[in-house]
């Protein structure tokens, strides 16, 4: 299963980011979310959602071999990661995130918390 997105339904409320950070880090901080929301205003007036599509480009790009896919989910091995951020640059969707509190980037693990809370169904399960 993958998480799908419909940007025209996104209202920019960032509730997805709040639950993401609460679920993974136990913190009230949308800046620690593995999903990105960016507004394009005043024109054309829309939100862009940055979300991992499991495309595996980061796996190929990582010079340390620190990124691998297991059970269909991409994960970064913190032991091998050197925080070089090549993966962040390699991601075509801008869906690998960093925060100054962490020395390892973070990627969506498809837990689905964001899908459950999204008030407008801009995020959904895609089979």
């Amino acid at each position: 299963m993958k998480i799908g997105k419909e940007e025209s339904r996104c209202t920019g409320c960032r509730t997805c980011q709040l639950v993401c950070a609460l679920h993974h880090f136990g913190e009230n901080n949308p800046k620690k979310a593995a999903i990105g929301i960016k507004g394009e205003f005043p024109s054309p007036g829309r939100y862009r959602i940055s979300l991992c599509t499991q495309c595996e480009k980061c796996i190929d790009a990582c010079p340390e071999g620190a990124i691998a896919k297991a059970d269909g989910i991409i994960r970064i091995d913190p032991e091998k990661c050197t925080y070089c951020l090549v993966c962040v640059d390699s991601c075509p969707f801008g869906a690998i995130f960093t925060h100054r509190d962490f020395k390892v980037p973070f990627i969506c693990d498809v837990c689905g918390e964001c899908v459950e809370i999204c008030p407008t169904k801009a995020l959904f399960w895609k089979t």
């Binding site: 209202t11 409320c13 960032r14 509730t15 709040l18 007036g45 008030p119």
Partner: peptide
Amino acid sequence: VVINKACFACAMCCGKYSH
């Protein structure tokens, strides 16, 4: 109306963004 626009953490998205 172009899209619905919400404040932080809001499910109701009462903001209507228009052209």
